[in-house]
Design a protein around this nucleic acid. Sequence first.
DNA 1: CTGAAAGCGCTAACAT
DNA 2: ATGTTAGCGCTTTCAG
Lengths: 318, 318
Amino acid sequence: VRTIREVAQRAGVSVGTVSNVLTGAVPVSERLRQRVLQVIQELDYQPNHLARSLKVKQTQMIGMVIRNVADPVFPEMLRGAEDAAWLQNYLLVLLNSDEQVDREQQILRALHTRRVDGILLTANPGSDSSHIRAVRDAGIPVVALEDDAPGLELDCVTADHAGGAKDCVRYLAECGHRSIGWVHSDSADSAEARRFEGYRDGLRDANLEFDDTKVARAESAGDLLARNPRLTAVMLADPLAAPQIGRTADLAVATFDHPRFCSALELVSVVQPSYDMGFKAMELLIQRIHDPARPRATVMLPCGLQIPQATEAARSAE
Amino acid sequence: VRTIREVAQRAGVSVGTVSNVLTGAVPVSERLRQRVLQVIQELDYQPNHLARSLKVKQTQMIGMVIRNVADPVFPEMLRGAEDAAWLQNYLLVLLNSDEQVDREQQILRALHTRRVDGILLTANPGSDSSHIRAVRDAGIPVVALEDDAPGLELDCVTADHAGGAKDCVRYLAECGHRSIGWVHSDSADSAEARRFEGYRDGLRDANLEFDDTKVARAESAGDLLARNPRLTAVMLADPLAAPQIGRTADLAVATFDHPRFCSALELVSVVQPSYDMGFKAMELLIQRIHDPARPRATVMLPCGLQIPQATEAARSAE
DNA sequence: CTGAAAGCGCTAACAT
DNA sequence: ATGTTAGCGCTTTCAG
């Protein structure tokens, strides 16, 4: 493997000159420039970015650590973050904490010693965020994606889960539904809690009464319809529960995320602005890398409503 | 941010000694060891891994570059690779080429200059693999995850797609199905081609005749049943096509991957051994890092058949 | 067992 | 505009 010194030697110039053509910081005569470029080509020399990073004290590398790679919102989120990173010449690397706090700690430590310029974090819930504080205090900016870490005042971007659920209720009400049920998932998280709030708010706004006989846990989803024959619409916290609800012509089913799955099944779905969340979070992070003193930013992005064509058509035919 | 020198100073020892306690390569008297550890704690010093890497010429970092993060087999594959990497003290970072060859090239270059110790690659199809050859020839081992790069003789691990499809046909035949259809997806890839082969082989083995009126393209999937009322089973290259096939009591539907989705919909599914593939690929990679001269290894792992309980029950009730 | 010093590959003054 | 050189933070001989 080649070094800058070999290139310099072979091009008959000094290492400084080679460095100058590489970084472009200092102008180099066209004659030498060409000669250097030529040699770089011939040797197919790849600068050692480690050495550069050691010297300039920045790696142009950002770590994104995510809690659950199987989450359906994750791919788009990653793409958004990636696009924003490339735009500013950062390399984005992804790490998976797999819902384990100790893994998250290891990862953060590894990113710290490797001196990434910043971290995008979808933290695991858990009160102990000392490992996050550690990297932050060491001067590595962290922005929280989805869940804020308690007590750290991080920049953060989240989806407006409550608003999304509320919009969905409004839509169903506008479609004429007066009796709308709710089925919890079996692994409730904070996002679901906010969605449930939105559901209740939505009912209130539509002058519908909240009625907890219309609310079921995942296990007893099947009973819900039996208990409530008048139910005309139901919202599912977990899209994968859809098949077991059964599908009758007059029952509207709405759920969250999983856009492909939902469109295949023709379910109404509240979808997070995943791409934008990733993009925005990365923008915030890079901003903060450049200006550590900027005031804290927290942004909440609205969700969208995905309505299957068939449903939409039925509605306008009314 | 702290350096090893500060630690040494404050502990009243030389930097060499600090380094020795850090690496453990050279024994240090318990007295000094404790003193150093103490200071490290106090300063909460994190060694600069860049400097270390520059010196020892290895980063303990492996890049996994994947073509499509939305692929349902990807999360488990990643977990397998991650687990194998941690076990040997490597940090695995993921990069997404997003089906774009130029992105893949950029990523490979970035990993090269950052001197990762090895690369796990799910390559985009495309004849030009010069960028892969470049890193490989620069001494960075590459193992192919799924598709081999033409002409490079990489170690590689793949799933036995043909065998999986064949097993599925056998299963359906054993269930009594004599007329089994096939629906292509609308974005056929090499895996699908191998599955289709397996389908044909499976028919032959079951003494069923291949009949191309029983084969449909994605667009005309709906017609298939109309054209072939005697069809009792159908295999779908794309699971998301399942809903549009419609579901009648006597039609068996089988498809590939998407284990959660398929179990929710109670579809028979051929599933790749994703975790094992990731794990095995990482093992091969690390082996090769340690022994660049080892002969080429290519491994093909068998797929499994996921059978919904209801289907299984129905079968044993016969 | 411990300390001193050379050097990994690169950049950034500084001098010419 | 170009060359020289002193580090960046760490590991690793080599002496003691």
